[in-house]
């Protein structure tokens, strides 16, 4: 049965993710070197950047499965697309929150409009919140089709938003990539990769959990219909 197989796969992913997360937390707080300039607050970088990257990947998955849905009209693909976008949206919220905390710690203010990545995530938040507004206001097969189309359009908006915000800032004052990226020590990089892997694990776990849930819902509805037909 496919059901037991997907349940087993979920269990394996879940356990691996739990282990990875534990390892990542341990490594980040007890093993990785403390940043010379920023101190302890720099630890948030591991979460913030991992979540941001996986969030973007989630939206990409949403768009790719949206395209695949349009090609095949298999409702299962829409499930994957919409769940991935839902997770991406939740991750975006976390990105904005952790980013805001980080901004407070390093710049002394909760919000800066000068960081194009953070600002982009707010736009992304709006873009994909609209996705769910669209989903809830259209019914039936149209919902799946229109969501798929919008998931593609929204994903095209992401780089455009980022670029436009960045260009606008760069004319005011040039953007310098000071945080993360290039000036990471090797030990930091290793722990960053571990936390990235853990975040991917979280994404996959939630995705599978939701997929099983939806399949169960659908099976339940079918059973109900059959019962009603018999009655």
């Amino acid at each position: 049965m496919t059901d037991t197989r997907s349940t087993r796969r979920l269990a394996i992913t879940g356990v691996l993710t739990a282990i990875l997360t534990a390892v990542a937390c341990f490594g980040i707080f007890f093993v990785a070197p403390e940043d010379a300039d920023q101190g302890i607050i720099q630890k948030i970088f591991y979460f913030h950047v991992s979540i941001a990257l996986v969030g973007l990947v989630a939206f990409a998955v949403g768009a790719i499965y949206g395209i695949r849905y349009l090609r095949t009209r298999d409702a299962h693909l829409d499930d994957v697309s919409s769940i991935a976008i839902g997770i991406g949206l939740a991750f975006s919220v976390l990105v904005v929150i952790t980013g805001s905390i980080w901004a407070k710690a390093s710049w002394g203010t909760w919000w800066v409009w000068t960081d194009p990545r953070l600002v982009t995530f707010v736009i992304v938040l709006l873009l994909y919140a609209a996705y769910f507004v669209l989903r809830s206001s259209v019914e039936g097969e149209l919902r799946l089709r229109y969501s798929a189309i919008y998931s593609i359009a929204a994903f095209a908006s992401v780089p455009l938003s980022f670029y436009s915000v960045r260009v606008a800032r760069s004319f005011v004052h040039p953007v310098v990539f000071t945080t993360g990226g290039a000036n990471m020590s090797d030990a930091m990089l290793v722990w960053f990769l571990v936390s990235l892997a853990a975040t991917v694990g979280v994404f996959l776990t939630i995705l599978q959990l939701e997929l099983i849930q939806r399949r169960a819902d659908r099976a339940m509805r079918r059973v109900k219909m059959r019962l009603e037909a018999m009655a």
């Binding site: 873009l127 507004v133 669209l134 259209v138 919008y150 929204a154 908006s157 455009l160 436009s164």
Partner: peptide
Amino acid sequence: LLACLALFARARELLLPVLFLPSLLPVVIA
């Protein structure tokens, strides 16, 4: 494109700005 997506939606007048404006931000900026 988005007007077509909102064509058969409930509360279409509310949906359209919510769908349309976030994607329009880059145009406003540029």
